[in-house]
Simulated scan of single mutants.
Amino acid sequence: MDLGLTLLVQLAVSMPFVLPREPTLPPATWGSYAVTTLSVLPLVWRRRRPVAVLAVIMLVGAFYRLAMDGPGQPLPYAGLIAFYTVALVCTARVRMAVGVLSVLTVSAATGLETGAARELSFTLFCAGAAYALGRLQYTRQAYTAAVEDRAAQLERANRIEAEQAVARERARIAREMHDILSHAVSIMIVQAEAGPVAVRRAPERAEAAFEAISETGREAMVQLRAMLGLLREDGPAPREPQPGVAALPRLLDRVRRGGQQIVYEETGAVRALAPAVDTAVYRIVQEALTNVVKHAAAGRVSVRLHHTARDVTVTVADDGRGRPRAGLGSDGGGDGVGGHGLTGIRERAAAHGGTVTTGPGPDGRGFCLSAVLVTSRQEVGS
C-alpha cells in the first residue's frame, strides 16, 4: 500500500515537469526532478518512521525552494501525507511536538519566501486538514478493532457455551442410559437366577419370572430406542414421553417379582409435576431400587413421595445389609461410594435445586436414601 501511494504521489509531482510550460518560466531540469523525487521516496517508510520521514521531506522541500529553480507544486503532497501519518500512528506527545515545529517551520519558510498571509493560511489549513483526517482514521481503526475484538470474544463465548451444552447433554444421556440399563439388567439377572429354583419348587413363579424378564427387556429397549434416537442424524427422534411418577407402580411391580416386599405411598399436597421433575423422580426411584436389588439383600423396601408447596421428597429405605461397600458398581452396573448410581442421583437432584442424603434406615437397619427436588420455579430462581 505504501509503495503504491508513493508511486501515485510521484505521478502527481511529475506533472509540472511533463506538461508544457510558459516560455517565461525557467526550464524543468533533470536535477530539479531528481530532488522532487527524493522528497517523495521516503513515503515508502512512512509507517515505520513517520517523524523521520516528515523531517526528511520538509528538509528536501526547503532545499528545493532555496537552491533549485524548478517548477513549483500546487500542493506539498508528500508533506501532507507524512503529516497525516504522524497524526495516525504517533502518540499525543509526539504529535504535539511535531505540530508545533511544523507550524514554526512553515511560518518561517513562508516569511522568507513571500511573506504572504494568504499563502501561510492556505498551507496551515491543508496541514490541519491532513492532521484531522489522520486522527479520524485512527478513531475509525480503533472502533473497527474494538468491534472485531468484541465479535471474537462473543464467538469464543458462544463456542464455550456450545461445548458446555454438549457436555451437559452427554452427561444427561449417560445418566439416562446408565439408569435404564442398570435397572433392566439387574432385574433380569435376579429373575433369571430365581427361575431355575422356581421351576423345581413353584412352576407358577417361574412363569412369572420369565414374564418379568421379557417385560423388563422390552421396556428397556423402548427407552433405549428413544434415547438413541436423540443421537441419530438421519431422522427425527421419537417423541415418546419419558416415564414419570405415573409409571412408578409398574416399576415397583417388576421389582416385586424378584421377591422383595415393596410398600409405596404418596403423601402431602399431591399434584402433577413438571415433566423434567417428573422424570427425575422416576429415575431416582429406579436407581435406588436397582441398588437394593443388586446389593442390599433386603426383604422389605419402602418408597415414599412427599409433596409440599415448594418441593417433593423421594425416600427409598430398605432393611438390607446397610450402606453399599466402596467400589460396588465401579464397573458401571450399580452403586456404592465409588459407583455412578448415587452420583447420578445427586446430579439429578442438583439439577432441580435439591439435595440428597443417605444413611441407615429409620430403625438403624438397612439403607435409606432421601432426595429433595425443588418444584417451585420461584424458589429455584431465588
Rank of each mutant, 00 (worst) to 15 (best):
L11K: 01
F17I: 01
A28D: 00
W30R: 14
Y33F: 15
Y33A: 08
T36W: 07
L38V: 03
L43Y: 09
V44A: 15
R47L: 14
L59N: 07
L59E: 09
G61F: 06
A62G: 12
F63Y: 13
F63V: 06
P76W: 08
G79Q: 11
F83H: 11
Y84G: 02
V86K: 06
T91N: 04
A97G: 04
S102R: 06
V103E: 08
T105M: 15
G111V: 02
L112N: 01
L112R: 07
E113W: 14
G115V: 04
A117R: 09
S121I: 02
A130W: 06
Y131L: 13
Y131G: 03
G134F: 08
Q137Y: 02
Q141L: 14
A146G: 05
A146S: 14
D149T: 06
A151G: 04
L154A: 12
I160K: 10
I160Y: 12
E161T: 07
A162R: 15
Q164H: 11
V166Q: 11
R168A: 09
R168I: 03
R172N: 07
I173F: 15
H178C: 03
H183Y: 11
A194M: 13
G195N: 12
P196R: 03
V197K: 13
V197P: 06
A209T: 04
I213L: 13
S214N: 13
Q223F: 00
L224Q: 04
D234Y: 05
G235K: 03
G235I: 02
G235V: 05
P236A: 00
P238E: 12
E240F: 04
P243I: 01
L248Q: 03
R250M: 00
L251M: 03
L251T: 00
L252H: 07
D253S: 04
V255D: 15
V255Y: 06
G258M: 02
I262P: 14
V263D: 11
E265A: 15
G268C: 05
G268H: 10
A269S: 11
R271D: 01
A272W: 00
A272N: 02
A274E: 14
V277E: 10
Y282Q: 00
I284G: 08
Q286V: 00
Q286M: 11
E287L: 06
A288D: 06
V292C: 14
H295L: 08
A296F: 09
A298Q: 08
G299N: 10
G299Q: 12
V301G: 14
V301D: 13
V301E: 12
S302A: 06
R304L: 08
H306M: 02
R310E: 12
R310V: 11
D311H: 10
V314N: 11
T315A: 06
D319I: 01
G320H: 08
R323Y: 07
P324S: 05
A326Y: 02
G329M: 07
G339C: 11
G339H: 12
H340S: 13
R346M: 03
R348K: 10
A351L: 11
H352D: 02
P360N: 04
S370V: 11
S370R: 15
A371H: 05
T375W: 05
S376G: 00
G381K: 09
